[in-house]
Nucleic acid binder design. Sequence first.
DNA 1: TATGACATGTAATCTGTTACATGATTAG
DNA 2: CTAATCATGTAACAGATTACATGTCATA
Lengths: 193, 193
Amino acid sequence: MNPPKSQSKIPSLGYALLGLLQKPSSGYDLRKVFSSTSLKSYSDSPGAIYPALTRLEKQGLIRGKVEEGSGMRRRQLFRLTPKGLSELKTWIIRPITREDLLWGQQEIVLRFAFCETVAGPAAAVELLQSLETALKAYVAALHDELQGLPPAMPGSGRLAFECGVRSTECFLEWTRYALATYEKEGRKKRGTP
Amino acid sequence: MNPPKSQSKIPSLGYALLGLLQKPSSGYDLRKVFSSTSLKSYSDSPGAIYPALTRLEKQGLIRGKVEEGSGMRRRQLFRLTPKGLSELKTWIIRPITREDLLWGQQEIVLRFAFCETVAGPAAAVELLQSLETALKAYVAALHDELQGLPPAMPGSGRLAFECGVRSTECFLEWTRYALATYEKEGRKKRGTP
DNA sequence: TATGACATGTAATCTGTTACATGATTAG
DNA sequence: CTAATCATGTAACAGATTACATGTCATA
């Protein structure tokens, strides 16, 4: 009666966890990653992590097993299931859309960060290419909007808008830099013909 | 018994609404601003806006009045109360901390965008100066972290980190550009001595 | 043996999302 | 008249925050 609800919408934190679980980890390990590395934008609170892990396990995307080592603290190691890996891969390699850009850089860069180990360098290049396309259109649209701003707008309002434009341009430059890096690597491996 | 709970933590959306309500608006107006301008990162759904307005009114930060025009649709105009204006100002001019940077650019730029009309150009300059200080330290820390990355890290992981560094540097450049803009304006008004 | 770090979880509460509901006014 | 748009809300649900609760192990 309903359309098949194959994908039961996973929040961003869920995908971050899936990506990190390429290396089997406990909830505590994951919390430490979020609190100590540059993924600080995600919550490291137990009230966020543990329920999220439980949900992912219920969906069959990860599987936890309590470690039984002599003289060790109780510790549950989670690892990706094949289904979880496939879900992660699907999320990562979906081409970048304008919507993705509106929801923010963070998630896009996270997808890219996981891309090489999950789907290989070729997929990373494809992801960057779709990102470049989307960004070029978006930057152009932002410039148009900047032109159309009411001249009565106070200085700080216009400057704030310019900040958004610059930040997007910077993201585009990084995308090109990343593409160039992959190209260089490719040439190295093929022996710079 | 409890410490005085003078500030009852307002979420980011609440402050965005307070800032926009410098110009009296209806809930529908505000939704249109969120859906049509570059504030698209905030939700324009009625289920977010209307409850948020109700909360702000209960806290005495805004006041709504139903408009009674001949042959007009029912429409409730909200405007800032003095208490709301003061709360908004306090939020805006608090110096930028490292925590603010971790929570994201978005909110900082929003604060700056409202700063000039709420607190004047001098406050905007002070805000930018505290931002510059915080950003300089943060960029340095990010460079250190980049040096310390494990060499075993896959290419896309390192590139993703570099994206964060570049984006922060870009933000710092914008901050200096904005400061320069204010300085130029100041000289113009004082007659370029 | 007492302190602190390790490790996991739960409960209350708040906010946002999604979807639905309602009525008034204007355009065709 | 009827369809679309204006304008406001509500209800059910999911997810995050905060604070608390529990117990283990190492070490001083």
